[in-house]
Amino acid sequence: MTEDVAVNEGRSEPEEGTRNSPAIKITDLSLGYRDNPEALIDISLAIPERSVTAIIGASGCGKSTLLRCLNRMNDLIDGVNYEGQILFGSENILSPRTNVTALRRQIGMVFQKPNPFPKSIFENVAYGLKLSGIKSRRIIEELVEQALRSAALWDEVKDRLDDSALKLSQGQQQRLVIARAIALEPKVLLLDEPASSLDPISTLRIEELIYELKHSLTIIIVTHNMQQAARVSDFTAFMNGGRLIEFGPTEDVFTFPKSRETEDYITGRYG
């Protein structure tokens, strides 16, 4: 992990990010729900690795749907059909042959509302590790500590690892959920409005955390908050009505949007 950081620092600052090779390459992705056949329309997008990509857009434009394609969470919904290609390394995520459980260990996800299990803090973080087949208690303990440290939660919980996770504050719960996801050392972390149910201070801590984590991971974050997108992301994708309208380095998208729709949305002249 430390190696990765060193490599990353030598190679890319946010403004140079375009040089990063893509972690995920989406080509002509379309998706329909049973009662909404055009939830995503022909989306093509290459998400640079070890950087933060923000997805912005009005409610219902398909941000969550797009995110949930990347770890095949949409498979849980009856009557979903999709076509297109999502390359992750050399693998097509959307292929029926994809091992989805292995995929989800590599592409972690954090949801809008903190959703820890009604188990202890330790068991929450250990959950995925145990499922991945690690048996040694000692190794699990080490990895749990490491994940909690990475999620900037260790100091707050190290003396009460056996307490119920539901005793934590909302902000702590959301960092716990992030720890739970990064314990599996995923390559990509999907965050679906991770701070929208948090107070400003907890939000700030999540943003700091995102800033730390992007040295070792590719992060894709859906957010409603323009300032947040501007603060945390290196790249921004703007969506509207199931289509990708604009994608580029965050600075460009916010200062010189190419599309009128993007400009209206960013300047708040939208809906």
């Binding site: 969470m73 849980l76 996800m109 949801f111 959703n115 299990f117 959950y127 995925g128 959920v177």
Partner: peptide, 27 residues
């Protein structure tokens, strides 16, 4: 049970059976 309990488990790479017996039933 909250629906996001099942999502949380699946998103961590659990199969349906693992989700049922390790997340849902204990809860």
């Amino acid at each position: 049970l909250p629906g996001d309990l099942r999502e949380a488990s699946v998103a961590l790479g659990a199969t349906h059976g693992e989700t049922v017996f390790k997340a849902v039933l204990p809860a």
